[in-house]
Design a protein around this nucleic acid. Structure first.
Lengths: 164, 164
DNA sequence: TAAGATTGATGTTTCAATCTTT
DNA sequence: AAAGATTGAAACATCAATCTTA
């Protein structure tokens, strides 16, 4: 359990802000560990089925949503949590595989437009059943409706991480 | 929000096992996204303070717990979620930096024993205040005691991911 | 044969610098 | 100067093969 419970932590001060910090740090470590294990498990299922990693699924899904007009890489960046250089290289791999196409933007000379191809639509359709089953097996199956409601509410409180 | 809500998902079957699958998939995507953002934020704080990444903290913490006898790499592997080859190279970096030492095991000719050094103890002590503040800022500060209790209970249900 | 651990080759991510257009 | 995007070099992760001892 507790991936990194800090035994170093100084003996619990009276500062109200740190009163329950031990429980908070334990929960933090637990969350890190569980989500990493879940991610590993799901990625493992995809790989076992001979399919590409989750980040391909995420990118293709956003591009499919965008429709025939495609998306600017900078817009994709906002959806996915990727650095610009990282996205640039991901798109290069996707294009090499033939699942997306890139063309220069007519509106903005600096930019590009990326669209999903038929082959990309086919790939994401083949990925989804495997992904769906992996989520069910490792995640949904272990939680009931109340768990999902509570979890979602708590995660919602953690959403604006970039603040401050 | 919803990192990859599957619009591909076929129109909700009557199969009881999949009745609430949409909510589950949303919660799954939310969890992935939030934990990745939190991790990025905390790693960013460490880096901004000129400190090494979290995985160093985790390894050093386990080794400090182990005390003077040290730990076998295979034992560290169990604590951290790392592949063997990955750990091997992490330990090489830690040793190069002088924060751990490796020596052959006297009990098992195949194995080694790894211990933290004084320099390693110093490093982890310098990392902890930064890490603690990052957890507080990005995580604890946004949750109350009930949130922590609920979150921990839910994460507990997700813990045995390797099953089945 | 299996467990503990490492390594060469390859792929991916990151940092910092760059290039083009706004 | 700032925004959109890319790239060389370096760091790190992964795969498959290897080595040693149990």
């Amino acid at each position: 359990m507790h991936l990194h419970r800090p035994e170093y932590m100084p003996r619990m001060t009276r500062d109200p802000g740190t009163l329950s910090s031990e429980a908070a740090v334990d929960a933090w470590a637990q969350m890190l560990r569980v989500s990493q294990a879940l991610l590993d498990a799901v990625e493992g299922d995809l790989k076992a089925a001979g399919l590409p990693p989750l980040v391909w699924y995420d990118a293709l899904l956003e591009l499919r949503r965008a429709g025939p007009e495609g998306l600017r890489p900078v817009a994709l960046q906002g959806q996915m949590l990727l650095a610009q250089y990282n996205l640039s290289r991901l798109l290069a791999r996707l294009e090499l595989e033939g699942v997306v196409v890139r063309r220069p933007s007519s509106e903005d000379g600096r930019g590009q437009v990326v669209s999903i191809t038929d082959s990309g639509r086919d790939l994401i359709q083949r990925m989804w059943p495997v992904y769906r089953d992996a989520i069910a097996r490792h995640f949904s199956r272990r939680l009931d409706a109340d768990d999902l409601t509570q979890l979602s509410a708590i995660l919602g409180k953690l959403t604006h991480v970039a603040d401050r």
